[in-house]
Amino acid sequence: MDAIQVDTLTKRFETTTAVDGLSFTVEQGELFGMLGPNGAGKSTLINILCTLLKPSDGRATVNGYDIREETAAVRDSIGIVFQEPALDEELTGAENLAFHARLYGLGKAERTERIDEVLELVDLATVRDEPVKQYSGGMKRRLEIARGLIHEPAVLFLDEPTLGLDAQTRRATWEYIRRMNEDAGVTVVLTTHYMEEADQLCDRVAIVDQGKIVALDTPEALKDQQGGDVIVVGLDGDAATLVAQLETQSWVREIDVTETEVHVTLELGETRIPDLVRIADDVGVAITSVELRKPSLETVFLSLTGSTLREAAEQTTAPEDGTPSDDRATSGPVEAEQ
């Protein structure tokens, strides 16, 4: 049985279609990512799958339960971490977990045991009796992840789990997500607009734009579709002689020439930079710059939708407040090294 089956699911609001005829499946135990700009419909999809919103059309099952007909069974079998923090700041970490455990019907013995277990899992055991308002952003996130796991759900939804966290905390949070996916064996569905997050964390990634899935595969396969690395060579002068020489090289896959640059598509670009520079030297062309571009999910998104994640977000939504300052660094279009 697949963890999630979605069949031509659609959600229309008054003026927009947030989810537009989506179909996909998520396997059990998978760490599944949905990458797309803000406003692409990811959160709407999550809200539908966890029965908080009714779809306009289509159907979906979560753990085999129909999201329209069997809402209670769906809710029992999922955990969710919402995009905005949803903790009671006046209660302690352990009390927040106990509240949740009671709502999910856990008995006393099981409750105590599970609270200890999940607090251990996210390294919050030492601060369990501190009020949540004294927690840092990263600790709150971890507590929410722990809470999502208390009732041993088969599927855990994480809506932008690292939004607003600094780069270091973000990486640490990935570790926790990976750990519970492996240790607890829970299927994880996460949404993100950080391409690095989707790339490094997820087994498979669905690229979502304007309510549609434009591509779905492993991060490696998605990047492979881009045809390889690109070396961008900045030139001072005529490119023709260099291009002619490069075209004879077996390792060159494709060449694009612009006014001041030559784009060379190839595999393992970093190993060919010395060759390229030598050839340019030999034919007497002056190089002003060399840049290696590795394919990233950002470039995949760009080639599939014609805009960068950032541009797409700006088209659909106003710029968000509180966007972390390292946003640009992690989702920028060019990443020379991973």
């Binding site: 966890c50 029965t51 908080l52 209670a72 809710r75 029992d76 969710i80 919402f82 905005e84 923090p85 949803a86 903790l87 009671d88 700041e89 949740h100 709502l103 999910y104 019907g105």
Partner: peptide, 13 residues
């Protein structure tokens, strides 16, 4: 306002 209502509403209660 603080999003906690969703946590209550998504529970099987």
């Amino acid at each position: 306002d603080v999003g906690f209502l969703k946590e209550i509403l998504v529970a099987p209660v």
